[in-house]
Design a protein around this nucleic acid. Structure first.
Lengths: 150, 150
DNA sequence: TTAGATGCAAATAGTTTGCATTTGT
DNA sequence: ACAAATGCAAACTATTTGCATCTAA
């Protein structure tokens, strides 16, 4: 239950959705996280923040947020359960080490040229993107690399 | 059960894994698909190809392929179940319509400059990437847009 | 020959739904 | 006031696991 409404909360309201306690709490937890929460982790944190919030409401919020593109389910490591990542300003990028699963974030990219070319060529309207690189992190590409985790 | 072993099948063998009938069938189905199969769709096609192959083996193959980076679970549309996409030559891109879920593929991208900059800056070794754009497809951004599917 | 892989079916997550009740606007 | 959202618990799916058997190398 954040005191100040975030941009995303306002987007919720603009979409004609109620700013309920449950939704604001879920959003708050997501915003306070590093942006990589599985549903299990999210449930745990939401319950910690307010044990009266039900599981179903968390999933319903996640579903709503996904439909509103506030959030996007993604795969980090080879797990079966999705991690929900915030789509803040349409930018979210990481390098994923295919050996140890470490996730390294980076903010900059320059896809605007490509995006506008695609808009013209494919007749679409683009409002966001996700870019992931796969490779080996510093540890794992080192000569004496062992199996590690972040 | 493909007659000729694909590059990926060879990668399996190189990893010290047996080229079993179940694995080759799963791989074959994936390679013959457009590269966007949910586990349910995959199960269906594998069963059609050979009803004696068990569900568990399909999941086990998917898990193995993911660990070997032959395949990567991703979210297409807001579904809870992942779609498995092949990671063929390190290139796989699509524009996903956030309204109707349509997936439009495109092959070209120029991320080599960014990739090598990241290699230097982050000390990683990059060997592949996934780029997804989100937006509205031609249908859905049309003035008279209805809810549609591909 | 034999470690690794399989198919089956049962067990276990993980997510969704129905419904009476509560809440935001 | 009242439509929309909630919490609960039961219903569903989807995935995983144990184990005896089979098979690729």
């Amino acid at each position: 239950m954040p005191e100040i409404l975030s941009q995303r909360a306002l987007r919720l309201r603009e979409g004609g959705h109620k700013l309920t306690h449950a939704r604001l709490t879920v959003l708050d937890v997501l915003e306070k996280s590093d942006g990589h929460l599985t549903s299990a982790g999210l449930l745990e944190k939401v319950t910690a923040a307010d044990p009266t919030i039900g599981r179903a409401s968390v999933f319903r919020a996640l579903d709503l947020f996904t439909r509103l593109s506030l959030v996007r389910p993604t795969y980090i490591d080879s797990s079966v359960t999705p991690s929900y990542v915030l789509l803040p300003d349409g930018h979210h990028h990481h390098v994923i080490c295919t050996n140890c699963g470490r996730v390294i974030e980076f903010a900059d990219c320059d896809l605007t040229a490509l995006a506008s070319e695609l808009e013209t060529r494919l007749g679409v309207k683009i409002h966001g993107h996700l870019l992931e690189f796969y490779g080996l992190c510093g540890n794992c590409s080192a000569p004496d690399a062992k199996i590690e985790e972040s």
